[in-house]
Design a protein around this nucleic acid. Structure first.
Length: 769
DNA sequence: CTCACAAGCGTTTTT
DNA sequence: CGCTTGTGAG
């Protein structure tokens, strides 16, 4: 039992008391993962069957890491039978087993956000609604929110509250759209992300025998990051744990930052009421950070009203104060950060991997990429476009999807004319209409078109679409025999996708080609692994959870010693010796431009700040710029009010007090009650330029920008064909051609690293080397 | 139907 | 700026 000796008292209690409902409140850096893994290992050592333990996480990465750690204690053979994974992957698995009673095929497709938006767009168009009023993004988030709160289309139509809200945003027909969307998903044999949870709940609600089976199967249920569960997840957990009551939830209310996707902090706040016979374990000692960082983070979070009482403390060194960088421009901010990294790395012998730059939105990464590149500092970026979202990958995956589930209309629409087969938009919409009229899938319409030409296609088109169907049918036959890799590469070649991409010798084309190769390699790996483990290795098996994979699931060797750039959200659960929290401006922390900030949202911004700070082990930095470019427009910014909320004694403010914090609006000014009656809704912040003193500064700032602009690139008129030039982001390259007349000079440049680019010189600043 | 160019719009955060 | 969508000629 030596692993128990590695734990402090609170941790050991949480590990050893395995029966009944338990709430583990795990402060930042308090060894949460250790408790969770040891608790499961402990259960196994006590004789629990691995198949009777269900443990739910939010990311694949967390699940995988935990599984590895448990395997290293109890052995691979035991660990592999644990039910461990994300909510979505576990319940997708259960839904595939039980799909029949819901009327779904077991090989149902999982629509990703792009698929469901494309379907919504089509529906909005069919309803003859204006897509400027009915923005697919907004409709999609309304439907998603409904699903997360377990509101079915029928319930939605009856629910006065949501209907009233829909009226207020002038979208009264969302209920109908929702209903149609659900119907079409069902017809296509598809579920979206939210359906995986909604349908699980429906399954458990309507089929008590099935619920009972799983209730009895899972003697122990563990949930990680419980503060991030939404209502659908909450109810699933509650149902599954109802028989044995051995539910252990682990989380930290101070790190609840996902309300935008339906997470309810109430779930953890109310746990003790929900389970009166519960035990509470508080993990309060932080092993990660210096005292300064822990105390500073506490000083922000303590201003929040809704939270569970706890005192997180550190017994590590006191450490350095949190350094605040106040930059004049966004470029200067990047420079300051890059500079600090170079300097401290040399002085303190840090590795690059000891540094992280955290920002609010992915779009903010650019400035720092540029600054790091200039100094030759290696970096890696998380987020942005995922591998599985790339066009070429989605195209090939769509072929796989259609082969496995021919009713998958979204997949069909994507590839019926890729590579080009002469089947254009008009033909496709005829087919779609015919499918709708007959209540079948597009594929079925084409399949029957020999005997029954519903879409009234002419001879030429008829033969084209039938060729397409024959191709897919031929794959379908083979797909039940061949392994995933054979099948995938056959599809990739026979459809001419490989040829098509190979033809394209531009750098972008090459990278697309490589991506396809990488995907095929991944599938090969899957095939081999599955065969070795005696698992089925058909293409359908590979496709089962590919929709639930994200980029962060594949860390490569080459990414070893690099500075990490990521959003605060995706940094949760990670730690770095040095953390830069950048872009800490009033309109980013919190972001005010997206309508009203409720007090709840405001508290969440504080928690976001808290999460960011507590990633740091040794040094934390805050930086902001007073002006920055967004969408090509100049913005003037105030530093975030949250900086002033940090207890001063922990801050190392810049010497030149060139920024007057007194100008910051006070809470009363900043949060004005809106007049239109909604209680608790607070107003939009006044814009920065409206604030006193800002107008005079405007001139100074503009001049500074002018200077930095001149400094950065050479005069466009000096750029000539044949010159070697340097671009901020693309690096060095050769000018192939210059055309147009000043100021609208255009240059074609071939960059060594980024390939050929067309640049508008007044925007893309080039330096002559 | 396909390609090339023009216009317009956007940026939380993610399974 | 950079990406997606719309429009018009071939």
């Amino acid at each position: 039992m030596n692993y128990l000796e590695e734990l402090n008292e609170a941790q050991r209690n949480a590990v050893e008391n395995t029966d009944g409902p338990s709430l583990v409140i795990a402060g930042a850096g308090s060894g949460k993962t250790r408790v969770l893994t040891y608790r499961i290992a402990h259960l196994l050592k006590q004789g629990a069957r691995p198949g009777s333990i269900l443990s739910l996480t939010f990311t694949n990465k967390a699940a995988r890491e935990m599984k590895e750690r448990i395997a290293s204690i109890v052995g691979q053979q035991t660990a592999r039978y644990l039910w461990m994974g994300t909510f979505h992957s576990i319940f997708a698995r259960i839904l595939r087993t039980e799909s029949e009673v819901l009327g779904y095929p077991s090989n149902f497709t999982i629509y990703d956000t792009a698929d469901s938006k494309s379907l919504l767009k089509a529906i909005i168009k069919e309803f003859k609604l204006d897509d400027k009023t009915y923005k697919p993004n907004v409709v999609s988030s309304r439907i998603s929110a409904a699903k997360n709160s377990l509101i079915t289309p029928a319930a939605y139509a009856q629910n006065a509250q949501v209907r009233e809200y829909d009226m207020s945003i002038r979208m009264p027909r969302i209920a109908e759209i929702y209903k149609e969307y659900a119907r079409r998903c069902f017809l296509a044999g598809a579920m979206d992300f939210d359906d995986l949870l909604l349908k699980t709940n429906i399954l458990f609600r309507d089929h008590k025998d099935i619920l009972k089976k799983y209730q009895e199967r899972f003697d122990y249920v563990l949930v990680d990051e419980y503060q991030d569960t939404n209502f659908a997840q909450y109810l699933i957990v509650k149902n599954l744990a109802a028989t044995h009551k051995n539910l252990c939830v682990v989380g930290d209310d101070a790190q609840s930052i996902y309300s935008f996707r339906g997470a309810r902090i109430e779930n953890i706040l109310n746990f003790q009421k929900d389970y009166p016979e519960h035990q509470v374990y508080k993990l309060e000692q932080n092993y990660r950070s210096t005292q300064t960082i822990v105390n500073a983070a506490n000083s922000i979070i303590q201003k929040n009203k809704r939270q569970l009482p706890k005192t997180v403390y550190s017994e590590n060194d006191q450490g350095n104060k949190i350094k605040v960088f106040s930059a004049l421009t966004d470029n200067e901010e990047g420079y300051l950060v890059a500079n600090e990294i170079s300097e401290t790395r040399m002085r303190q012998h840090y590795k690059y991997a000891d540094y992280a730059i955290l920002y609010r939105t992915n779009a903010q990464s650019r400035i720092f990429e540029e600054a790091l590149r200039k100094r030759n500092i290696p970096y890696k970026i998380y987020g942005g476009l995922s591998f599985y979202q790339r066009k070429e990958i989605k195209d090939l995956l769509s072929y796989f999807r259609l082969v496995i589930n021919p009713k998958d209309n979204e997949a069909l629409k994507r590839i019926i004319n890729y590579p080009a087969r002469g089947i254009g938009a008009t033909t496709l919409s005829k087919l779609e209409q015919a499918a709708l009229d007959n209540g079948v899938s597009i594929f079925e319409i084409i399949e029957q078109s020999g005997t029954n030409n519903h879409a009234a296609l002419n001879k030429g088109l008829l033969s084209k679409v039938q060729q397409f169907v024959a191709l897919i049918l031929q794959f379908q036959e083979k797909a039940v025999l061949n392994d995933a890799y054979e099948m995938a590469s056959e599809i990739a070649t026979q459809t001419n996708i490989i040829k098509d991409l190979y033809k394209d010798q531009t750098p972008e084309g090459l990278s697309r080609f490589e991506n396809i190769q990488e995907l095929l390699n991944g599938i090969q790996e899957f095939s081999i692994n599955a065969r070795e483990e005696g698992q089925p290795n058909l293409l359908a098996n590979y496709m089962e959870d590919v929709a639930l994979l994200t980029d962060q699931d594949s860390e490569k060797e080459e990414d070893m010693d690099k500075v990490t750039l990521m959003t605060v959200h995706s940094s949760k659960g990670l730690e770095f010796k040095n953390v830069f929290i950048v872009g800490v401006e009033e309109n980013l922390f919190p972001s005010s431009q997206f309508g009203n900030i409720t007090p709840e949202a405001f508290e969440e911004e504080r928690r976001l700040f808290y999460v960011a700070l507590t990633r740091a082990e040794e040094n934390a930095y805050l930086s902001f710029a007073k002006q920055r470019y967004r969408w090509g427009k100049l913005d003037f910014c105030n530093p975030s009010r949250f900086i002033t909320e940090v207890d001063e004694q922990y801050l190392d403010m810049p010497d030149e007090a060139d920024f007057n914090f007194d100008e910051l609006p006070t809470e009363g000014q900043a949060i004005q009650k809106q007049s239109f009656g909604k209680t608790g809704t607070v107003g939009r912040r006044p814009t920065t330029t409206d604030q006193p003193g800002m107008k005079q500064k405007l001139v100074q700032l503009r001049q500074a920008k002018q200077r930095s602009q001149n400094f950065d690139g050479d005069d466009p008129r000096d750029i000539q064909t044949g010159m070697m030039v340097e671009h901020q982001r693309f690096g060095k390259g050769k000018v192939l051609q210059v055309e147009g007349s000043f100021p609208n000079l255009k240059a074609t440049v071939f960059f060594q690293n980024a390939g050929q680019k067309q640049l508008l010189l007044k925007f893309a600043k080039l330096k002559i080397v």
